[in-house]
Design a protein around this nucleic acid. Structure first.
Length: 938
DNA sequence: CACTCCTTA
């Protein structure tokens, strides 16, 4: 018999990313003639493959032999040369030694089926491989048992003494400059017009349902909306085509083709300052460039640097916050240089590396350079890096600020950094970069006349609509751009404008036609591109846009901008782990950016639907940088992976609140990416290989142990793209019905898997998407993410010297997929509220007990018998909604997140429940207690 | 009964 507490010789049977499988020799067979291989896991900083080799003999201590024959092992404090226990006395241990031991602890994990249990037959002297492996069938879930679960977070030593509890005030978003101002109040209460439109819509729907005859009548007479838009749509298309043909013949190439590329380049404002700019670059390692729009900085500065010879010392890089910007600028510059994209001039974005060894000018996304800094912190292949559009302050740019600042200093003149900024914060930028000079290049835009309202507007939707109609009826030709906060507002405004215009034109036939077009990111791209069609003469176009039209999309021919002064901003609440989409007043910088959109093709006018006083006194100067209002766990993991341990002291230009960093650290600790001392674990290192949120990378790695990585890769690819379900206004119900065909009983993660599988099986994927109301673009993107993930898995296998691929299919055992997600997303778990709860259908999160709701788009919406769930994200919009939800068995929380959950206090349980209760409370920190986790699972 | 925007080997 194998004895507890004894040291045995074992043999390493296989090395896993986490640890190893170890088999133990024993004199006697176990009851069923089988001996178990146990899994041993490690938290060392080295990879297990660096410590152990397959076939190697090791000394292990048996901690526990269970009734079913399962064995718990440990290698902690076993002298591997002698096979004896190292006994230490407490007094000898200095604090430092203790710490090192903690970090080196070989942690033991009781093997169970979910973690890839294998049995080996013990054959005696039969001559066959005594270690031949026998796969054990995955255990089916036993019938439901009631378990009460509560959170039992332990605070790691590196976070002890830190204030992890937040004050209520602090957890809420406070970014407004003037919380008492009229704009803030309006933002809080919302538009009366909107809420009225909403109730009107609801009533309308009710009426329609009640009276089918009326519906038929409407159909016979024609829907008022369609009556107006349909004939005009054809007209637009026809005349737009004619217009386009006329323009492409004479005009659109007109100005450009008259000028040679050389002449065009020399006509840019930046050309006048070429020599001065190059002198400053030569004299300084850091340089701030304030380049207004139309100055030519993005396309020219890189070329000047290359002409000046900087390319001989390394690649000249220029970062952009968006993928399209990186590719389109690279194409333009390649044209100017006279090469193909990918030769001397290239670009690198995710999934697309269009560079070669000839490339000397490289445009890339800021996120891409951030990933590159992870591999090479000194960025040795670059001689100059230009952080373009830095005033947008994306998280990647902010991180690069600090990383590049250090890299430039370390490389002592070998690397130059150019940062572009807006006028407003150029001094701040200069101070941060060692008081470097600021270089101004004037832009080339047309003047924009700005009008303010005399009184504060109480309903910005209503006044936007009124202003549009006013401009249309009274002002000379020129298209209108209106900035609204979201899809719902835009749709309602579109409808109202079309209605109002038809009434107006019936009354006053001389009023010209107004073409109303919406644009927001979730609109399919063929609908989006309609805004670029030129306006037929004699008509006017009004584009209702979200802030997508501030930077990402530029529409030619806009002469009027209507700016109500609000945006929807995402503010992450670290305490609740919840994104909040809140309507807020914009910043002054943003207001200026918006008005600038009127002056691109000629002098323009901007109507600001707020007072000048509000602009000056209620609006903050700058938008709060993203790094101060997002979940930072991915960013912090990257920093840790770069060897930056003191993230609290990291030199951010605008430091995020300590709470935001602390909760990110805590999240990483909970996921086992950080150890007790806040040091990156081997597991965390592996997580950093994946370009995604830590919750996702943890799930991905765990899925190997759950033997369902193939499927989990697909689901995570689907989670990493924008919403795949398309819901056009007219065919909403049909779309919903078709979507329901994909629903899985257990929730949205598996629904996504269904969709992906059906899509990849389809003969004609394009047609399939059309028929099933699915965004084809997102699906193709998901396939790209999937491919990338497969590659990363492959690389990890090579790194771990794994012969077999760790991409494993669960072959239909989809419970394993849900279990894998529990092991990553246990933090995002919620429990159905008690049935007597007044708010029926609501849930409460296990971590903070926040009331939350199932989003109506979920396949679990209004489903019964769903008591425990995990969710992908929590977003506060109209309500606190969980998005992408999957039903789970609460026992899984105990099994796969044992450091985080425990069963509820036994005194609260009924006697019946007590007998069924899975586990007594145990000491999570004692490896000897780990065996309890899977006891009772038979 | 429902969605600001963007990115990441």
């Amino acid at each position: 018999m194998i004895q507890e507490g004894q040291i045995y010789t074992g043999r390493v049977r296989g090395i896993k990313p986490f640890g190893a499988f170890i088999s133990i020799r024993s004199e006697e067979k176990s009851k069923d003639g089988l001996c178990h291989i146990s899994q041993i896991s490690t938290r060392r900083l080295e990879s297990p493959s660096e410590i152990l080799k397959t076939g190697q003999e090791v000394f292990v201590k048996v901690i526990k032999v269970q009734n079913d024959g399962k064995i718990s092992l440990s290698m902690k404090n076993i002298d591997q040369s002698k096979g004896v226990e190292i006994l230490e006395t407490e007094t000898m241990e200095s604090r430092g030694q203790k710490r090192r031991q903690d970090a080196d602890l070989w942690e033991l994990t009781q093997m169970n089926n979910a973690f890839g249990a294998k049995r080996i037959a013990l054959m005696g002297n039969g001559g066959e491989d005594p270690y031949a492996e026998v796969d054990e069938a995955p255990e089916q879930d036993s019938e439901e048992e009631e378990v009460e679960i509560e959170v039992s977070k332990s605070v790691p030593s590196f976070l002890k003494g830190k204030n992890l509890k937040l004050d209520v005030d602090e957890s809420a978003l406070t970014v407004t400059k003037n919380p008492e101002g009229s704009m803030t109040r309006v933002a809080q209460y919302g538009s009366k017009f909107m809420s009225e439109a909403k109730t009107r819509k609801l009533e309308k729907k009710k009426e329609e349902e009640r009276n089918k005859r009326l519906e038929e009548k409407i159909r016979m007479n024609g829907d008022p909306l369609n009556q107006i838009t349909r004939p005009t749509e054809n007209e637009i298309k026809k005349s737009a085509y004619e217009e386009w043909q006329r323009q492409s013949k004479n005009q659109s190439y007109g100005i450009r083709s008259n000028m040679s590329i050389k002449e065009q380049r020399e006509s840019l404002p930046v050309y006048q300052k070429r020599d001065e700019l190059l002198r400053l670059v030569q004299q300084n390692d850091f340089l701030i460039v304030v380049g207004e729009t139309g100055s030519g900085k993005t396309t020219q500065i890189t070329q000047y640097l290359a002409e000046e010879g900087y390319s001989s010392k390394g690649v000249i890089a220029c970062t952009q916050p968006r993928r399209v910007a990186a590719t389109s600028v690279a194409k333009r510059v390649a044209q100017e240089v006279g090469c193909k994209v990918g030769e001397e001039v290239g670009y690198t974005i995710r999934f697309e590396d269009c560079t070669s060894n000839k490339t000397i000018i490289k445009y890339m996304t800021d996120g891409m350079l951030q990933r590159e800094a992870l591999v090479d912190p000194d960025l040795m292949k670059y001689s100059v890096i230009m952080l373009d559009e830095a005033h947008e302050r994306t998280i990647a740019t902010d991180v690069l600020f600090a990383l590049l600042r250090e890299a430039v200093i370390r490389r002592k003149g070998g690397l130059k950094l150019i940062v572009t900024s807006a006028t407003l914060d150029s001094q701040k930028f200069s101070r941060y970069f060692e008081n470097c000079p600021v270089f101004h290049i004037e832009g080339r835009t047309f003047p924009v006349k700005i009008f303010y309202t005399k009184e504060p507007e109480l309903d910005y939707i209503q006044s936007s609509i009124e202003t549009v109609i006013d401009v249309h009826t009274n002002n000379p030709p020129g298209d209108i751009l209106v900035f609204l906060t979201g899809k719902e507002e835009i749709d309602t405004c579109c409808e109202t404008l079309v209605e109002k215009m038809s009434l107006l034109r019936a009354e006053k036939p001389h009023v010209s036609e107004l073409i109303v077009l919406p644009i927001y990111s979730s609109l399919p791209s063929e609908m989006q591109s309609r805004i670029f069609e030129p306006t037929p003469s004699g008509k006017r176009k009004v584009v209702l846009a979200t802030n997508i039209a501030e930077t990402s999309v530029t529409i030619d021919g806009i002469y009027y901008v209507i700016d109500p002064g609000y945006v929807k901003v995402n503010a992450y609440d670290p305490k609740l782990g919840m994104d909040s989409l809140i309507v807020q007043p914009i910043s002054r910088a943003q207001a200026d950016q918006r008005s600038g959109r009127a002056g691109r093709t000629g002098p323009g006018i901007c109507y600001r639907l707020y007072t000048k006083n509000a602009y000056l006194n209620e609006m903050p100067a700058n938008t709060v940088p993203e790094i101060q209002r997002q979940n930072l766990s991915y960013t912090i993991l990257m920093l840790k992976a770069m060897g930056i341990d003191d993230v609290l002291g990291f030199n951010f230009m605008d430091r995020p609140k300590e709470q935001l960093i602390l909760t990110a650290l805590e999240e990483l600790y909970i996921l086992d990416a950080l150890d007790e001392n806040g040091v990156l674990t081997e597991f965390g290192k592996r997580m950093a290989f994946f370009p995604m949120e830590p919750l996702l990378s943890k799930t991905l790695i765990q899925s190997i142990e759950f033997k369902c990585s193939d499927e989990v890769i697909t689901v995570i690819a689907m989670l990493s793209v924008p919403d795949i379900f398309y819901r056009p206004k007219e065919k909403r119900d049909e779309a919903d019905r078709i979507k329901a065909k994909f629903h899985d009983y257990n929730g949205d993660h598996l629904t996504l898997l269904n969709v992906y599988n059906k899509w990849s099986d389809a003969d004609n994927p394009r047609l399939w998407c059309q028929n099933n109301f699915i965004h084809e673009k997102s699906m193709r993107r998901a396939r790209e993410v999937r491919r990338q993930l497969l590659k990363i898995f492959d690389n990890l296998d090579k790194r771990e010297r794994q012969a077999e691929s760790s991409v494993i299919s669960c072959r239909g055992n989809w419970d394993l997929i849900r279990k894998a997600f529990v092991s990553g997303f246990f933090k995002n778990s919620a429990k159905r509220a008690a049935t007597h709860d007044p708010d029926e259908g609501s849930y409460r999160t296990l971590v903070e007990n926040t009331p939350v709701h199932i989003h109506p788009s979920s396949s679990l919406f209004r489903k019964h018998g769903v008591d425990y769930v995990i969710y992908h994200t929590l977003v506060l919009t109209n309500k606190e909604y969980m998005h992408c939800i999957t039903k789970i068995d609460p026992k899984w929380l105990l099994m796969y997140a044992p450091r985080f959950f425990k069963t509820a206090d036994s005194s609260q349980l009924s006697t019946k429940k007590k007998t069924e209760k899975l586990q007594p409370l145990f000491n999570r920190n004692d490896p000897k207690e780990n065996w309890r986790l899977s006891k009772g699972r038979r």
